[in-house]
Nucleic acid binder design. Structure first.
Lengths: 202, 202
DNA sequence: ACCTGAACACCGTTCAAGT
DNA sequence: ACCTGAACACCGTTCAAGT
């Protein structure tokens, strides 16, 4: 996790127990961190088409995660952190979906699609490296990748040069050191095109 | 995290240090767990259309996560766990994409879209509850939700009844106790429709 | 080959006591 | 109101020693 209350206390020059005057629990502190970092991800509605509004939302969210990679696993993995996202953001997403023309029985599902899309790719992209020995681990994985048998996995072998360290699973660095810009763009455009289709179908 | 080497040792009736004979490190053990649980997520290629093949892949992955919710945050948040997914799965995904007709310069991006889609929604859906006092936390959040000011957030207030405990952020249980089936379906169909569009555009 | 047993340097959290 | 200081019940990991 790479985060400890005792570290926080240390860098504040204070006893660990002192933290508990300001915060009820460790989860509580983490929730506040997520709340603070994600406060302004949702753009103002009304100025952009719903498609561009979503593009802006997604890339702002990714940008926040890029700057605070430790937030990634909180957002993705902990309900507490997740629940600390602002009602203002939810309200804006919903109103954009309504304005886009989604029907009442689609709104909730599409809202969930938006949230999952917003955090899904980036939490993966900025997943944490092993704390232990990152360099050794990277070398080990790199070797494992290069020893993939072309006979057993022909398609993988063929695309390996293009994929190495630029695609999920087949990489030894995370988004901090090896960003996945073009795939992120593809991901966003795929989601938006899919939503346009859902809109047309209703 | 809810997982400790010492717990493992205890339930094996063995000293904690004994574990280190079989495994190099804690991360190592977790990687093996992920590897084992996710071994058979990828269906056989060739029998289904690429769309149905992906539908099957996505719902199998969700099913595994549903049965082993602790795997969720590993898959989503840790590069080590992520890297332990099988080359066989990667190979199958790639060959399905090739057979679907995606061009060479799209394949890698689309592969990343598939992986992100595969784990994105479900890791969020089955994000872990607070370890501390889940019931108390749920009650507290429920109250916070019901006290949302309708004047400040009109759209949210309007959809709140439909959203409560059935949508991300606005919920106090995770997928284990409150599954999000219809939204997952919408998510999958959105992704597939978006990919069809990417295919048509090329 | 596989495990014991003790030790080390960490955690989050509690609680009485200080100021 | 805010912090100290000690304590408690945990961690992951190492290492010599046993069998």
């Amino acid at each position: 996790m790479g985060f400890s209350l005792r570290d926080v206390a240390r860098s504040l020059g204070v006893y660990p127990s002192a933290v508990y005057w300001h915060v009820a629990t460790r989860d509580d502190l983490l929730a506040s961190v997520v709340e603070a970092t994600m406060a302004d991800v949702a753009p103002e509605p009304g100025k952009l088409s719903w498609q561009d509004w979503l593009r802006e939302l997604f890339s702002r969210c990714r940008e926040v995660i890029r700057r605070h990679p430790n937030v990634a696993q909180l957002l993705g993995g902990h309900l507490v952190a997740n629940a600390s996202l602002s009602p203002g953001m939810i309200d804006r997403i919903l109103s954009v979906l309504v304005a886009a023309g989604f029907k009442n029985d689609q709104i909730v599902d599409m809202y969930n699609v938006v949230i999952a899309t917003m955090v899904g790719f980036s939490t993966l992209e900025f997943a944490s490296m092993p704390t232990d020995d990152p360099a050794g681990w990277a070398a080990q994985l790199q070797e494992k990748v290069s020893s993939i048998r072309a006979l057993e996995f022909p398609t993988l072998a063929r695309y390996l040069p293009a994929m190495a360290n630029r695609s999920f699973i087949v990489r030894w660095q995370n988004g901090t050191d090896a960003a996945m810009d073009s795939s992120f763009r593809a991901y966003v455009e795929t989601a938006i095109a899919g939503m346009e289709r859902a809109l047309a179908r209703a």
